[in-house]
């Protein structure tokens, strides 16, 4: 039984310059443009952002740092989003970290599969910046105006 202390209540204060970001998000997506877009949105709100281009690399990074949220694409080479989440949920150190799945897949089956694999939410691309940021804040416990 291990709970991530990060995901507990205390809402992080707005980021002060020079301070470590209150929340750290890992973006796992093979599309550079999408990663860049998410990173831009997150960084301007003071989130720390790391990127990985597939599930395998994502897992590697997830094990090296503490993250508060995973933003995961489905369709990737080497290890897809489902497999990544399945690994995360199986890992005692990672299993408590929430995950948003991000995909253009629109079928009922894809969404069901995402939730089954371990996603906590499903956002469809193209990413709506307002919705995306609101989701991230809600899921990481950052005060949502």
């Amino acid at each position: 039984m291990s709970l991530s202390p990060h995901s507990l209540a205390a809402p992080p204060a707005p980021p002060a310059p020079g301070e470590a970001p209150p929340c750290r998000v890992l973006i796992v997506d093979d599309t550079l443009t999408v990663r860049l877009f998410c990173a831009q949105l997150l960084k301007r709100e003071g989130f720390g952002v790391d990127e990985a281009i597939n599930g395998l690399e994502g897992l590697e990074q997830a094990l090296q740092h503490r993250f508060d949220l995973f933003v995961v694409d489905i369709n990737m080479q080497k290890m897809d989003g489902y497999a990544f989440l399945a690994q995360v949920r199986r890992n005692p150190d990672l299993k408590a970290i929430p995950a948003v799945m991000l995909s253009t897949e629109q079928g009922t089956e894809d969404i069901a599969r995402a939730y089954q694999a371990g996603a906590n939410f499903y956002l469809t691309k193209p990413i709506d910046p307002v919705r995306f940021m609101a989701t991230v804040k809600l899921m990481t416990g950052v005060a949502c105006p």
Partner: peptide, 26 residues
Amino acid sequence: RALAMPGRQDQVEDIAAVVRNIAASC
């Protein structure tokens, strides 16, 4: 919905974390 997925009832830490975070956020 996630909670109702087969196989996810045994591992609910992430879901619990999200629920707590949503409450905290709001």
